[in-house]
Amino acid sequence: MQAFLRDSAEFLPILLQGVGLTVAVTLGALVLSTMLGLVWVLLRVSGVPALAAASRWAINVIRGIPIIVQLFYIYFVLPDFGLALSALAAAIIGLGIAYSAYQAENFRAAIEAIEHGQIEAAQSIGMGWALTMRRVVLPQALRVALPPYGNVMIMLLKDSSQASTITVAELALQGKLIASSTFKNTTVYTLVALLYLCMSLPLILLVGRLERRLGRRRAA
């Protein structure tokens, strides 16, 4: 136990640097995937068949390719076409695009959960499509989408470890580097797991609370 604590004191500062990058990748990809996901879903519900079809296909293609392959593609293939990104930027863009598909599906489910009468009420006072979305549909859909959004955050936090495959020295990769140079696998990977839990457990508890609150609202 003492050895564990001594080694922890030595490794933690390095691992915390990894935590910093994990948070950067997660938050960056969260923002990008949210914005892209909104774009996909607004195209999907635009009522214009060509736009809806384009959105459907974009989502299918994104969902059909493993995240790791998307990361490789952006980091290793795009430079061949003259677009060289830093590892961090590539990780954020890759995960952001990959997760935009899940975000879009989540948003779509939330929008479709809104009663059609709400849209008719908005139209009946002269609102057009954009105003109906902004003032009536999206504010209500946001509440429905919030718990699953929290789940997406948790998944994204964990999947940010895939950035290690394109040399982003986030938490998982830092752990692997320390472990392979010190052979203290147990200590290092226990710390890595605990650090992930420190970040994910608060999110998990928060999602649980949001779900209960939404459940009460539905029951009322």
């Binding site: 009468g117 009420a121 908005a122 009946s124 006072i125 209500q140």
Partner: peptide, 12 residues
Amino acid sequence: GMVFQRFNLFPH
């Protein structure tokens, strides 16, 4: 103006 059977007020 239109008034609906199920009111359709904006709940938020």
